[in-house]
């Protein structure tokens, strides 16, 4: 008896929600109510001029700054709150490929439309922009942005040196020491910016290494990409036991002042991320 009652309540709720959504749809035939569950998707939506369709974002979505004031957060990146998402009454949910599948299934149960874009490589960004453009009826803007990105990336690829590239150690975390491997987005950026990513020797996206591994490969440049107070990661790397003989430490080429959000997000700002890395690797950026 009790089970039936519960079932009825759930069904009733689902029906109410479904009807609520469809009513909204009829009122706004052009617009969608978007909940973006990834910071790069939020940036893409805003970059093609559809920022005012956003009704939900994650706590990591901090760009453009304007949306942090206007759009409420519905949970963390990778861990959205189902209830907050539903409360935002979305007609479209934007996800990336490492969304928690359990929550995604729940969205399906509530018949919420989802667009899942894999964003693992540079080329994925243009594809994601075009797809979002089609769904949001912003094809011209999306097309223009995607073409621009593709052209610029092609230029970067042409300009990237093939030989005598400085060896770069990307420090994703310093406790434990984690670096980015061959299958990571960051590795692609580093190579495009003229460096040779040390982690490429291992065919995994992210993995733990020992101090010994770093010393033996003797990187020319160390990029500290963990979030920490300014200067602290750099200081830790410069004073780590055994690291004094590393070329990057000797030559004072340890950087912890990079714009991590721009470099780590496969979104429309990726070009300035590559440019920043290029400045670093070419030795034109100050370490402090």
């Amino acid at each position: 008896m009790r089970t039936t009652t519960h079932l009825t309540i759930v069904l009733f709720l689902a029906a109410t929600l479904a009807s609520g959504c469809s009513r909204k749809n009829r009122q706004l035939p052009q617009g969608e109510r978007i909940v973006s569950l990834a910071p790069n998707m939020t940036e893409i939506v805003c970059a093609i001029g559809a920022g005012d369709m956003l009704v939900g974002r994650t706590t990591s979505c901090n760009y453009p700054v304007e949306i942090t004031r206007r759009v409420p957060a519905v949970g963390d990146f990778g861990a959205p709150s189902l209830e907050s998402v539903l409360a935002a009454k979305p007609t479209l949910i934007l996800e990336v490929d490492f969304q928690n599948p359990v929550i995604s299934r729940k969205f399906d149960e509530f018949r919420l439309k989802r667009l899942v874009m894999p964003c693992k490589t540079l080329d994925d960004i243009a594809i994601a922009i075009r797809s979002v453009g089609i769904v949001l009826h912003r094809e011209p803007e999306a097309e223009r942005l995607a073409d621009f990105l593709t052209d610029e990336i092609r230029e970067f690829r042409k300009a990237a040196p093939k030989k005598n590239r400085p060896k770069v150690f990307v420090e994703i975390s310093n406790n434990p020491l984690i670096t980015a491997g061959r299958k990571s987005f960051i590795s692609e950026l580093v190579n495009l910016a003229g460096g040779e990513n040390l982690g490429d020797r291992i065919a995994r996206p992210y993995f733990e290494v020992s101090s010994e591994w770093v010393v033996s490969h003797n990187p020319d440049i160390i990029l500290c990409l963990e979030k920490s107070s300014p200067g602290s990661s750099r200081k830790l790397a410069m004073t780590r036991p055994g690291w004094q003989i590393i070329a990057a430490v000797k030559g004072n080429r340890v950087y912890d002042n990079l714009n991590i959000d721009v470099i780590s997000r496969p979104g429309p700002r990726v070009l300035s991320g590559i440019e920043e890395l290029r400045q670093c690797i070419a030795g034109k950026k100050k370490t402090e």
Partner: peptide
């Protein structure tokens, strides 16, 4: 034994010394 291979690292070079020291620690 270490992540860079089995055997005593070359103690003549700076890198080898440093690696050996790390293993000792």
């Amino acid at each position: 034994s270490g992540s860079t291979g089995f055997g005593i690292p070359d103690l003549g070079g700076e890198t080898g010394q440093s690696i050996f020291l790390l293993r000792v620690y």
